[in-house]
């Protein structure tokens, strides 16, 4: 009996040299932290087995939405070239340029809001940002309307500043 026990002990000592116990990592991950912002609120909705929610079909989303964005962008191309070619724009064309620019900007800002404020984490902030953008756009449209009617208009105004 004692023979087995001493042999077992020596075997255990030998085994320790053969296979050293793996070192436990100091932390979960050891790479450098490069967080831009602190971690947001951790929202746990349902379980892992829930299917992804299917968005309700909406005719203004999807391809129509995409096509509309392209139409606005394509429209901006001649409206941008025209003042360089003609030297200035007719007040109505100038107003169309202003409205198209605001529409294009609004869509662009919307994309930024949706990209950078995830709905799951910050639903209230997202809503606030959307409404802030909507009100800003209305205010800008009013401001540009005032500028078009009481002042010289966008293209003429930019030209004036550029030549100043």
């Amino acid at each position: 009996m004692s023979l087995f026990r001493t042999t077992g002990l020596r075997a255990a000592t030998t085994a320790r040299f053969i296979a050293p116990t793996p070192r436990i990592a100091a932390a979960f991950h050891t790479s450098q932290k490069r967080a831009i912002l602190p971690v947001g609120p951790q929202v746990i909705d349902g379980t892992v087995n829930d299917p992804a929610p299917v968005p309700a079909p909406n005719p203004t989303h999807g391809s129509y939405h995409w096509s509309f964005e392209r139409l606005v962008t394509i429209g901006l191309v001649p409206l941008t070239i025209a003042p360089f070619a003609a030297g200035s724009l007719h007040p109505i064309t100038d107003a169309v340029l202003g409205a198209t620019l605001v529409l294009h900007s609004h869509i662009g800002f919307q994309a930024c809001i949706v990209d950078y404020i995830p709905k799951r984490l910050y639903p209230k902030l997202l809503k606030a940002a959307r409404w802030a953008l909507n009100s800003a756009t209305v205010l800008v449209l009013y401001g540009l309307y005032e500028f078009e009617t009481n002042d010289v208009g966008i293209t003429e105004g930019v030209k004036k500043l550029w030549k100043a």
Partner: peptide, 26 residues
């Protein structure tokens, strides 16, 4: 964002200029 931000900044400033006493005429 820079370009649109400029348009928005100017548009909003021009809209509220009369109330704030700003002179943003071209």
């Amino acid at each position: 964002v820079l370009l649109s931000g400029t348009v928005y900044l100017f548009g909003i400033s021009y809209a509220v200029a009369p109330w704030l006493g700003l002179h943003l005429e071209s």
